[in-house]
Structures are given as C-alpha cells and as structure tokens.
Amino acid sequence: MATGGRRGAAAAPLLVAVAALLLGAAGHLYPGEVCPGMDIRNNLTRLHELENCSVIEGHLQILLMFKTRPEDFRDLSFPKLIMITDYLLLFRVYGLESLKDLFPNLTVIRGSRLFFNYALVIFEMVHLKELGLYNLMNITRGSVRIEKNNELCYLATIDWSRILDSVEDNYIVLNKDDNEECGDICPGTAKGKTNCPATVINGQFVERCWTHSHCQKVCPTICKSHGCTAEGLCCHSECLGNCSQPDDPTKCVACRNFYLDGRCVETCPPPYYHFQDWRCVNFSFCQDLHHKCKNSRRQGCHQYVIHNNKCIPECPSGYTMNSSNLLCTPCLGPCPKVCHLLEGEKTIDSVTSAQELRGCTVINGSLIINIRGGNNLAAELEANLGLIEEISGYLKIRRSYALVSLSFFRKLRLIRGETLEIGNYSFYALDNQNLRQLWDWSKHNLTITQGKLFFHYNPKLCLSEIHKMEEVSGTKGRQERNDIALKTNGDQASCENELLKFSYIRTSFDKI
C-alpha cells in the first residue's frame, strides 16, 4: 500500500482533458527560462521544448504516446526543470519506465491550478516501474492521483506527508504495488545497510526511497516546507523545498512566496507586481503582455491589467481597466465587458449561442446573426445582446428569417469595421425574408467608422429604411451602385405612401 494514499474509496472516473512563447529569463536562482504550460502528445517531438525550461508557468501534460519505446527515452533528460506552477499529468506514455532521468531536479509542483483537485496525476502508464522524482520536495496545493499503472512499484516507500501538507485526498490505487509483488529495495538494503531515512506512518517504520538508488530526502521537522541542505541544516524561511546553503534567500532552489532578481522575498516591493503567484514583474512586463494579447485571437491570451499590486489576466467583477495605466478602477454604474472572439468572429444561430455573449459591452471581433427560429426570440436576444455598444469588426445579418427588427441591439452605437466582410463591408444584410426595420432612427444613433453597407434580398425592408441608415451611420456616399439592390429590397412591402385627393359631386333626387 502506498504510504499516505487512500484505498478502496469510491472515486469519480478520471477524465483526461485534452506555445513556446518565453516569458522571460528567471535569473540567477533558476538555471534556465520560464516556459508556458505545455500539452505534449502523440510523439516526442515537442518534448524537446523543455530543454531550457527551469519553470513551467502553467501545467505540463505528457500523454497518448503509443509508439514510443524505452530506448526512445534513454537520452532524454531535462535537468534544468525545477518547478511547475500548476500540475504534472502523465497518461498512456508507452515505453517510459521512470522519471528519474527525465526530470531529475523537479523540486516543486505548486498546484496553482489543479487537474480535478490533483497536482500530480500518473494514470495508465503501462510501462512505468517507478516514479523516480527523487528531488520532489513540495506539492504546495492539491493532491496526488496514481492509478492503474500495472508495473509501478516504489510507492509504499514514499512518505507523501513530507511532500504535501495533507495526504487525506491522495488516491493511489490499482498499481502493481497493490499486489505486494514489488519487493522494493532501498539503497544499501541488499548489503544489509540502512542508507535512507525511515519514518513512521500508520504504525509502520519504513525506509523512504524513490528507487533502488535514490533515497527520499527527509528534512528535520523544524525546517517545515522550506527544505534543508545535504547536511540537514534548514533553508531560509522564504525558500521552498530545498537550498544549497542554509538561511540564505539567494540560495533557495525555489521560493515559498515570490522570486525577485535572484532572491526569494515575502512580497513584491514597489515598483514590482505579483505575477502568477510566484514571481515579481515590473510595469513594462505587464504592459507588454497586455499589448501582445490586445489584437491576438490565441486562446488563453489575456490583456493583463494591474489590481491590488498584482498583474492579473482581467479586472475583477465591479472594476474596469483604465487604459492609460492598466489599473483596475471601480465602475460607475454597470461595468464594461470586452469579449474577445477566439477566431475573430462568432455566429449567433440560437439563443444558446447568444447567451455566451451575455453582459458583453464591447465585441472584439465580428458578429454573424443567422437565426431561423426560436421561442420568445426578441426578448431572449435583447437579454443577451442588448448591452453590446461596440463591435470592432463587422455585423452580418444573414438568412435570419425569424427577425423582424434589429432593435434587440438596443445599445449598439459603434461598428468600427477594423475587419470587413469580403474585404469591403462593415454591415452586411443578406436574404432576411421578414426583416422590416433596422432601428427606430428617431431614437437610435449608430456610427460606422469604416467599410460599406450591403443589402440584398431583404424583400420587406424598404429602401427608405436603408437610406436612413446611410445618413445616420455616416456611410452615405461610400456605397457603390450594386451594394444596395434596388429590386430585391422592399419588393414585397408597401414602401411608397402617396396622399390621394378626392373630389365629389353631391346629387339628390331633384338636383344634379
């Protein structure tokens, strides 16, 4: 039985969820670079991206490699990797027998973001014989899940209580170790020597080791999670996991709180800001991140802002960003909400898709409305799209047979046209069989910064309504002859009103 693990408890099935942008060198404390989270699957090609990484700022997932063999891993080693800020997950990587050479110096898994409450997941690794993470000293947050690894031993010899604050939620089941077939031998045991430290858990006094050649490092209890030197002297209180010299914040392997210019500090002093819960960055760093993602459509890219001495992905609820200094300031009234469309555009074809934009005031991208039916549609669209004030790209209304009016965009005031449909149009209306009105132009103002209007096959939309939009939106004169079809717009509506004058002759039985 794995020490510190839980057996036999019912657990939810383990679901495996399925960018080499360097964020800056980590400095003297770390020998390499800070790398983003990685999802490495199918083959070993991307694994080489770990070569210079000291910190993975995010998670590391290595999974679904069915053609790899043990010899493929023999020359692979990433000794610079010290810390993973989120979680480490391995799933069905064939041929991998140990992690001792792959990650010989991995010391800390912070667990800032977890995989279903777990910071370390080893699942269905069919050839893994031992973990071998002999320098792993601290899992700051989260638990361990090690399950269905039929060859995995050296679990009962690990004292997880020396690595985690609590072992109650560890789930370590259905491994070879369960069948008591392992016969784990710690260093020196074969020669009758006791080389590794022994600890007591559940009444068992057991030597602690990761492999037959690597003991588990056990520091004096007084050192807590700070770690200790090879001689057993406690590291500085700002260290986490390990250090090369005692009581020196510049000799830590990793930091308990924050890293700044080669030393570990309790908090980031001005003019620095907390970033990702582990390091200090200056304003320029946060500003660069903001600008890199301002026009990016890459998933996970955030326009970072500053709030409460932190550089964070977005302002919290009730705050909006001051564009001059990136500071989050309290909103006066309802907060603006910028919604970034991942692929640059979004099609609204149902109430469900409209709900995804609920509360958005600025759309960074283009909207395509293609709704053919739905219950209580006008009210639903207004509830979900009615706060949109600005669209950076274009607005396209296409084959939306259920629409009679666009009044559900009740606050839309600006279409920038930074991206144009077919390279020309910022407003595009095609084949809307029941569209009769755009907006009530006596109450609604709309500016279209650039781009043209396109109207074709809107049989109940009168040309007068379209011409009014040209005047109000500032697009009059931009359109070419064929942009607004004269014969297919309003051709099934009563669009022309003329005053009919009647004269009559009164007659009676005795007068003409």
Rank of each mutant, 00 (worst) to 15 (best):
F78M: 08
Q276H: 04
N135F: 02
I109A: 00
T140V: 10
S323H: 14
P246I: 15
N135C: 05
M137D: 02
H226F: 13
V218F: 11
S237P: 12
N42H: 09
C235N: 01
P316I: 08
H127A: 12
W210N: 06
E238R: 04
K100I: 07
G203H: 09
Q299M: 05
F283Q: 06
F73L: 07
G203S: 09
R74D: 07
H307Q: 07
I40M: 10
R141S: 06
C243S: 01
R279P: 00
A119F: 00
E130M: 14
K148R: 15
M65H: 07
G203V: 07
P36V: 05
R298N: 07
R110A: 06
R74K: 13
H28A: 07
L44R: 07
E266W: 15
Q61M: 05
F78E: 01
L29D: 00
N202T: 10
Y259S: 05
L240Q: 06
K100R: 11
L327T: 08
N322W: 07
D72R: 02
G111T: 00
V55A: 04
L64S: 00
V281I: 08
T140D: 13
L99T: 06
I185H: 06
R69L: 04
N179A: 10
T320Y: 06
P104Y: 01
V144R: 01
N138P: 01
N195C: 09
T45A: 06
S77V: 07
Y154M: 11
R279S: 06
F285L: 10
N105S: 12
L99D: 00
N309C: 04
P270W: 13
L240Y: 13
T229M: 13
V305D: 03
T157S: 09
L332C: 07
L326Q: 14
V200A: 11
T250P: 01
S237F: 13
H226G: 13
V55F: 02
V34F: 15
N309T: 10
L114N: 04
E151T: 02
T189K: 04
R162P: 11
S98L: 01
V173E: 11
E180G: 07
P271E: 14
E49G: 06
R297Q: 10
K310W: 14
V34M: 11
G232I: 03
D277M: 05
S161L: 09
N309F: 08
L164W: 06
M83A: 03
D72G: 06
I62K: 00
R92W: 10
N117H: 06
E33H: 09
F78T: 01
D248G: 02
N195P: 08
M83P: 00
E238Q: 06
E314G: 05
C223P: 01
V144S: 05
E57H: 14
C328E: 01
V121M: 06
G333S: 06
I122Q: 00
C328P: 02
P104Q: 01
L289R: 11
N308L: 13
G300F: 04
C293Y: 02
N242Y: 09
L327W: 04
C243A: 00
S244F: 14
M137S: 09
C234L: 01
G300T: 09
G32R: 14
N309E: 08
D165W: 08
P316A: 07
T45E: 15
C335P: 09
D159V: 07
P104T: 01
L102I: 09
I185N: 12
C209H: 04
E130V: 05
H214M: 14
C335Y: 05
S143W: 11
L64K: 03
H28T: 12
E231F: 15
Y94T: 05
I222G: 14
V281D: 01
K224D: 10
K224S: 09
G188S: 08
E231T: 08
H59R: 09
G32M: 07
K100S: 14
T157D: 11
Q299F: 06
C219L: 03
S323K: 05
V265C: 03
R298E: 07
D177G: 15
G318A: 07
M125L: 02
R298I: 10
R162E: 13
V167C: 14
N202K: 04
R162F: 08
S324Q: 11
L81D: 00
N52S: 06
C239M: 00
S237L: 08
N149T: 07
G132Y: 01
V265R: 07
T189W: 07
L164T: 08
L64R: 07
C328F: 03
N43I: 07
L136D: 01
S161M: 14
N322F: 14
S98C: 06
S284A: 10
S284L: 08
S143P: 10
R69P: 08
L240N: 13
V144L: 08
E207L: 12
P270C: 04
